[in-house]
Design a protein around this nucleic acid. Structure first.
Length: 1023
RNA sequence: GGGCGAUUAGCUCAGUUGGUUAGAGCGUCUGGUUUACACCCAGAAGGCCGCAGGUUCGAAUCCUACAUCGCCCACCA
């Protein structure tokens, strides 16, 4: 066997993604193509990965995110940029700690308090190590071209240093403060969570009416004030009852508003609004006098008695109490309700905190101390009822706040909290987008970004967790003089007064302070850690070495583009922009590209809590990484989310097992067909893991896998036929129509792909490549080339063009499908190391091959139009054959009546009609006489007659003609109407001209068909 | 309640600044062992472009209202 034969023998008929991925991954790693270093001769192109949370494994959303980044980075690398993609993972404070704690409790029945800080943190590190490994493995399996030498973790030393410097800088500029704030308290995790981590659920609840006795009621005054509440237990912390200061005016205002609404609301809502209005008017009659009285009493400083606590609390006049709601009076519990907290501040009321960190009630709850919320509520209600204070209970739908992390109820809780002042920082981030320095694509996402920032709400940065960057603050009761003495000459330690204790807050920029750093005084470190986003906000510059003035920071920063998903625009993107400017004086990135979300078959977003996240590995195993990538890129448009309908495939019998909401979270599934069990991505026990994994299948992946295979086989065809090829420059004068056509198409596609990828139009790029490779290169050029390859005189040029096109196609496709293109590229080098229209040595890897330059001169619309005519003629012949059921091996004769130009084009294609349609041409030109009996078709500029002689089924032909004529008549009619109307006068001349020409063409076609029909009818009649 | 997006063939989606007869893949149907590929080839059927108005010579495309679905933000003692 010759070397050549051996190479051909080594080409399997199906693309083997497993082998290719293993081989190319190892090759890339060994060669270090994706390692990037400062190189002043090149322009940098930098991307930092949105670091995935180490909470769990990656799902399809990450696969999409990574694919889009890699496609861009690979193209830029090929375009000659010094391309750097920095990988890494995020410690994801709350989420990760929650997951580890939940597991700890499920498996061992222990809480974090049983373990203690150090042991728990150690457990989380173990978890992190495990998932970081898995995540990195997933990213590598996807083929991502990251520089792994530069991998970062938001909790590693480099990032920690950046965090400390950022905090210190904020502290130094007076932007960090500590205050009492009502926070969202997660009683399970025992930490405050941000508003963004809370979701609201609607549940059935109750509305309890309570009577608080008025102290010393006067003549004509009510003896009770009735308040309504959905949370009766909080009454223990009431400090006032509020009533609107001017209920009559408020009623008027609301009434006016409702009437206005009634006037212009849609018909079907009128009843509802009317009912609301009626209710309001009735309420006014019923309660206004009483509310006015109460407002007066409030202004007079009168009090009521808080039952159970037997505390006198004031009636206050405050606009928060809406006369149209509830009883018109509202109890005020500043420590446990955000709105009441505001009222408390306005009215100068104390805040009585009832809650312990673990969700039980504290000493302020009196005899209810130590009980949890549920029990307090029961007890309070029972006692109130006994006292006769509880006067009414209604059913009511209420909304409760739930923690996104622990899925348990959120309690508003008064707590010390660290904040960053946002006023100026937010402004810089708004300016950057408003003046175009940072671009957001698609542009519509800029609005949400700006709206969120414009609220300039201070950023709560403390988390009552153990997993994270510990806040670098120490409390001390030392005097300022003592601090000055202890830290004399230290530029890295600062302090400011601690308003809540009268002592000092000490902040250290780099190292932790010892307990005895101030002689004779004790330094106590803040327990809290920083919000995860505090460290990820620094990601673009911290990963490049900030605060050190590294060469990397100087060269690679600002980064080029940030590719992420829309749900973290405010949480993450906005904070990166403000932190970037604050720390480095520069924006963190030129552009933010927001990609679609991955939805499941029900149209719901994928999330861990729903369990509908799919491990990309389960898809890649079956279809290959390229198929996954190509499918995702193909689906990435700028307006539509990516809907993926996925199912399981039974590994035993191959049956498709529908993925349902029920079975998609199971670790093992029994195949309904063969009854055998298989495992899923959720398998954890040894027993489940021992079962074969059921791959996840979906139509989109199948299509993409087929495409990869098509490319493989087209490449295989080219390689098999390369024997004897002698590379030499292509002489344009020797090119045939089909050569010029495919080279023109290639140039157009190169242009389109480049532009599309540069504008993040991934779907466009993928589509262009798919159509070109399949419908043009494979279905036409490769087919046409077959007869040329048999002819020694014409062989070399065909080989050269095939090679040229394949070479460029591989390069264009490489960013989206890196493995198959690399596999082919390297094998191709064995067959033809020198190639291309201008012969050059192939690079050792397509990943570092130059990106195809767009050869504008090759783009030839004239030749494309002419070739289209050939394609149309071929299609007509094929259709005629199919319609008449001509056996595949039977050759038919055909002729085309057309003008000399078209004939000149078709004549050299004679061979191809034979090889591609089994048709022998008997003549092209204006003088062709229509045969009496034939299957014919009329296409623009051509009448095509396929002589099927004895085979013809006249009835079928007649039916076909009748249908066609009817259709043509319809078009002609509508066009004539159009041209006789205002169209001819008002539309631009070239459009009218086009329309006239098209009308003429249609008429010709109709006439041809009518003539044929008459002939056919005559034949039918004579039989 | 505020904002954003979607609605096109049985299904999943394209459709560039308004301009010939609205496209693709899957599925369906017909026919195929052509020396790259059955993960393939050739062909066919299938659409009142969500509904109603408007602008225009001309609307899937622009405007208004409505309907349905999804996402984000805010809020309801």
């Amino acid at each position: 066997m010759t070397n050549q034969e051996q190479l051909i023998n080594d080409l399997p008929k199906q693309y083997d993604h497993q082998a290719a991925q293993a081989r190319q991954t190892a090759f890339w790693e060994e060669k270090g193509f994706f390692n990037s270093d400062v190189n002043k001769d090149k322009k940098p192109f930098t991307v930092v990965i949105p670091p995935p949370n180490v909470t769990g494994a990656l799902h399809m959303g990450h696969a999409l995110n990574d694919t889009l980044q890699d496609a861009l980075v690979r193209m830029k690398r090929m375009q000659g940029y010094e391309a750097l993609w920095v990988p890494g993972v995020d410690h994801a404070g709350i989420a990760t700690q929650a997951v580890v704690e939940r597991r700890l409790f499920e498996l061992e029945g222990k809480t974090r308090w049983d373990l203690g800080r150090e042991a728990l943190v150690q457990r989380i590190w173990d978890w992190k190590d495990q998932y970081q490994r898995r995540i990195v493995g997933q990213i590598k399996a996807l083929g991502c071209s990251c520089d792994w030498r530069r991998e970062r973790f938001t909790l590693d030393d480099v990032c920690a240093k950046a965090v400390r410097h950022f905090f210190y800088k904020l502290f130094a500029e007076g932007l960090i403060y500590r205050g009492k704030r009502l926070v969202n308290w997660d009683v399970t995790l025992q930490t405050a969570v941000s508003d963004d981590e809370v979701f609201h659920e609607t549940v059935a609840g109750n509305f309890w009416y309570l009577n608080y006795p008025v102290v010393d009621p006067q003549e004509g005054e009510p003896e009770f004030v009735t308040v309504a509440t959905t949370r009766p237990e909080t009454m223990l912390g009431d400090v006032a009852v509020a009533v609107h200061p001017d209920p009559a005016a408020e009623f008027d205002r609301v009434e006016k508003e409702l009437r206005a609404k009634l006037a212009d609301c849609p018909e079907r809502e009128k009843d509802e609004v009317q009912a609301e209005l009626d209710d309001l008017l009735q309420r006014r009659v019923d309660s206004l006098p009483r509310l006015i009285k109460l407002a007066e009493m409030a202004k007079a400083g009168r009090k009521v008695v808080l039952p159970l606590q037997n505390r006198e609390i004031p009636l206050v006049a405050d606009v928060w109490a809406k006369p149209e709601k509830g009883t018109g009076c509202v109890k005020i519990t500043p420590a446990h309700d955000p709105n009441d907290y505001e009222v408390g501040k306005r009215q100068d009321l104390p805040a009585i905190n009832l809650l312990n960190r673990d969700g039980t009630y504290n000493e302020n709850a009196g005899k209810y101390q130590g009980l949890n919320l549920k029990k307090v509520r029961q007890a309070v209600l029972a006692d109130l009822e006994e006292l006769g204070v509880l006067v009414k209970v209604e059913d009511r739908v209420i909304e409760i706040a739930t923690s996104d992390r622990s899925k348990t109820a959120i309690e508003p809780y008064l707590n010390d909290q660290w904040f960053v002042k946002m006023a100026d920082l937010a402004q810089t981030a708004m300016d950057a987008v408003e003046n175009g320095e940072v671009k957001i694509e698609p542009k519509r996402y800029a609005k949400g970004y700006l709206d969120w920032l414009s609220e300039k709400r201070d950023w709560p940065i403390g988390r009552q967790l153990w997993w994270g960057h510990r806040i670098p603050i120490w409390y001390t009761d030392a005097t300022e003089a003592e601090l000055e003495a202890a830290f004399a000459g230290r530029a890295d330690v600062m302090w400011s007064p601690d308003e809540s204790t009268g002592g000092w807050l000490v902040c250290s920029q780099t190292e932790d302070l010892a307990e005895d750093a101030v002689p004779g005084r004790k330094l106590i470190r803040e327990e809290d850690v920083l919000d995860t986003w505090f460290s990820s906000a620094l990601w673009p510059h911290s990963t490049l070495g900030w605060p050190e003035k590294t060469a990397e920071l100087d060269y690679y920063y600002p980064t080029s583009v940030l590719i992420t998903s829309r749900d973290i625009i405010s949480l993450w993107v906005a904070r990166m922009v403000l932190a970037g400017y604050f720390n480095t004086g520069k924006k963190p990135f030129e552009t933010v590209f927001i990609h679609p979300k991955i939805l499941d078959k029900y149209g719901e977003g994928m999330s861990k809590s729903k369990g509908n996240g799919v491990d990309p590995i389960a898809v890649m195993e079956k279809f290959g990484a390229d198929a996954l990538r190509f499918a995702l890129a193909f689906l990435t448009t700028d307006s539509q989310d990516v809907r993926l309908s996925l199912d399981f495939e039974c590994p035993h019998c191959g049956a498709t097992v529908e993925q349902t909401k029920k079975n998609r979270t199971l670790p093992r599934i029994d195949c309904p067909k063969c009854k055998k069990a298989f495992s899923t991505q959720w398998a954890e026990t040894e027993e489940d893991k021992a079962l074969p994994l059921g791959p996840v299948v979906g139509e989109r992946f199948e299509v993409a896998r087929n495409f990869c295979n098509k490319l493989w086989n087209a490449s295989r065809f080219v390689m098999i036929n390369l024997e004897g090829f002698e590379p030499k420059a292509i002489d344009p004068s020797e090119l045939l129509v089909e050569d010029r056509w495919i080279l023109s198409r290639l140039a157009s596609v190169a242009k389109r792909v480049t532009e599309s990828l540069e504008r993040y139009k991934y779907s466009d790029a993928a589509r262009a490549l798919y159509d070109f490779a399949w419908d043009e290169f494979c279905s036409f050029y490769v087919e046409i080339s077959k007869s040329r390859l048999f002819d020694p005189a014409r062989r070399n040029l065909a080989q050269n063009v095939l090679l040229t096109v394949l070479d460029s196609l591989l390069r264009l496709l490489h960013p989206i499908a890196p493995f198959v293109t690399e596999e082919v590229w390297r094998r191709l080098a064995d067959f033809a190391p020198v190639r291309g229209a201008v012969p050059t040595q192939a690079t050792e890897s397509v990943s570092i091959a130059p990106w195809p330059t767009v050869d504008e001169a090759a783009i030839d619309p004239e030749i494309e139009a002419r070739f289209a005519q050939f394609q149309e003629a071929l299609r007509c012949v094929r259709e005629a054959r199919a319609r008449q059921n001509v056996p595949p091996k039977t050759e038919v004769k055909f002729a085309v009546k057309c003008d000399a130009d078209v004939a000149a084009l078709l004549d050299p294609m004679k061979d191809y009609f034979r090889s591609m349609a089994g048709a022998v041409a008997t003549g092209f030109g204006p003088d062709v006489e229509p045969p009496v009996l034939s299957s014919n078709a009329a296409a623009p500029g051509m009448e095509i007659y396929v002589d099927v002689a004895e085979l013809i089924d006249v009835a079928t032909e007649i039916a076909k003609k009748e249908k066609e004529i009817e259709k043509l008549e319809g078009f002609i009619k509508s066009k004539e109407a159009k041209l006789s109307g205002g169209f001819a006068e008002k539309a631009p001349a070239h459009v009218v001209e086009k329309e006239r020409a098209s009308l003429e063409e249609l008429k010709t076609q109709r006439d041809v068909n009518v003539a044929t029909l008459e002939r056919l009818r005559a034949v039918a009649a004579s039989k």
